[in-house]
Nucleic acid binder design. Sequence first.
DNA 1: TGATCCTACTAAACCGATATAGTACTAAAT
DNA 2: ATTTAGTACTATATCGGTTTAGTAGGATCA
Lengths: 341, 341
Amino acid sequence: MSEAKRFTIGDIARLAGVSRGAVSFALNGRPGVSEETRQRILTIADQYEWQPSSTARALVGARAGVIGFAVNRPARTLGTEAFFTDLIAGVQSSLARRRISLQIVVVSSVDEEIATYRRWHSANQVDGVIVLDPREGDPRPAILGSLGLPAIVIGGRPSSAEDPATIWLDDAQAAQSLFGYLVGLGHRRIVYISGPEEYEHARLRTDVLRELSDRDVAGEAIATDYSPLEVSSVMRGLLSRRERPTAVVFDNDVMAIAGLRVAQEMGVPVPVELSLASFDDSVVTGLVHPSITCLTRDTFRLGEDAAEFLLEQLDAPAILPDRSGPRPVLTVRESTSRPQA
Amino acid sequence: MSEAKRFTIGDIARLAGVSRGAVSFALNGRPGVSEETRQRILTIADQYEWQPSSTARALVGARAGVIGFAVNRPARTLGTEAFFTDLIAGVQSSLARRRISLQIVVVSSVDEEIATYRRWHSANQVDGVIVLDPREGDPRPAILGSLGLPAIVIGGRPSSAEDPATIWLDDAQAAQSLFGYLVGLGHRRIVYISGPEEYEHARLRTDVLRELSDRDVAGEAIATDYSPLEVSSVMRGLLSRRERPTAVVFDNDVMAIAGLRVAQEMGVPVPVELSLASFDDSVVTGLVHPSITCLTRDTFRLGEDAAEFLLEQLDAPAILPDRSGPRPVLTVRESTSRPQA
DNA sequence: TGATCCTACTAAACCGATATAGTACTAAAT
DNA sequence: ATTTAGTACTATATCGGTTTAGTAGGATCA
């Protein structure tokens, strides 16, 4: 009920005995006021704890103080992916320092995602956006470019000059280090259980495995829908083969844990007869027994970096050159060892 | 570059040959225009895909189309808590249907959280907020009430009439069902490993266990900081006792998995010699071996309900009566059984 | 001494909506 | 015939900022 009236630049102007325009100049550090008046205005603003109305600012086309994040994933699965939540947390931690807020909206298709960008842009609701999961022939970069909406794309390969700046994740190198580690241990029958093939990282990893296979390694990639159910059934099939693989690699932590369970149920000792590893880490991979060897990417850090990058991009006159994200490191745990002789 | 000019109500007015005021009336379904004119205006709006500027709306004090969520948890741990991410996902799924977006900001103290509410409210940046983790003597409800900022509190007990509407989680009943189940199985030495005591649900659960202890059951509650490290060390202590507990209950999934690992390392067979259970469920609890008995709360649903509740509250003239959240159900899995005779 | 340039401001327009006061015009009531 | 009421509008103020055009006064220069 006690709707305290907002303390606006009008009030500051009155108290300082100047016009609202002058106050705006002073507060935004631009020429047009004497140093003396500027100080007087800043003091008053401070004293009365003036807060700019981001709404009003946004309306005139200045900064809205909001970053947008349209997530095109089924809402139900959002929470189960450690990657996603860690990323958000990281983004937040960068933004919070500058009092910039994050607007998240869940969309269910690329079209809806693009429509969201259009809406945000035309209403000047956000200053920039973070884009996830770039794909082959992705229409989003071009559209964001033509809108002139600052953006950072996370993942994928370095992009062309007109496209939005990219934080590039070197998935090939990552896959190299994980598969290479297993081959180095002596594994010769390796299966990679991936998510849907349309994701770029799944394809990249498969390619790396395929390259290795050219030599004396028998590599095989099996795509799933990420669901523990499908992973379990695939896993059961693998372990029933006459010649079982000696190592199985999963796209993420949940899949790996599902796979581990099947091995345990079927009495296949890990890591003695079967090595398991995951491309994604999380708290639980280190807590299950045996703990699971993972490629650990600092996703939180990736989020922080992406946010920082976007903030820099906002102030930049042109599209910034791509950067590479934090390098994943191999965290060797209990689930991998040399294969049985 | 191609900054297409926004299509505004001014344009509609021009095309329809009426004033902007009339257009506003027509678009908001309020009296003041004839049915005929209204249709003409709506047709034009539709045809040109007019989108209201939420920024402009917010400025004049109408709906901003944004719900705020200030999360007071360390950013780094956000991602690891299934509860939190599921909740957000659920909230999103309700909001997305109405094209309302969610603004999330991570704060590091209650004071900062309150300051955020003040800022949001004074700038009319959000239409309402969702509040988490009510505590004893919580200052937030009163402040939100005095600001007149619509809010839904998740958790805690039913609140007083002036306080914001609450989605009430019956933690006592939930604790009853979990502890009661273990006692029913025949367990007499039960330990509850909780998070920090200042959280209301930790206290409530402890109380329930204590009540049971009055009879022939030896119940014990040990508070931790939620970290797997501390949980592990507590667990090691418990299993080294001469008289080990026969059942251990954890506040959440990660803690339970950490506890399970310690049991496995120490060679204590689960569930034969030790039953384990958790107050929080997640995908992985069903995937580890043995899978863990949990109290399963549909957190996604809770998020959906909270968002719906908040949207209703926005349209309501007064504070709505409290509701109770989805009832948790006991999901019995492999980690619990009757204690050894 | 007047023309010119700066500096430090003010006044007013503007962004895109909503809200309110006021104005024609018609129809019913007195 | 005149008041009254209602309908369908228009004109205009408003929200809280930013921005542009304009202006007064002093210093600089020819």
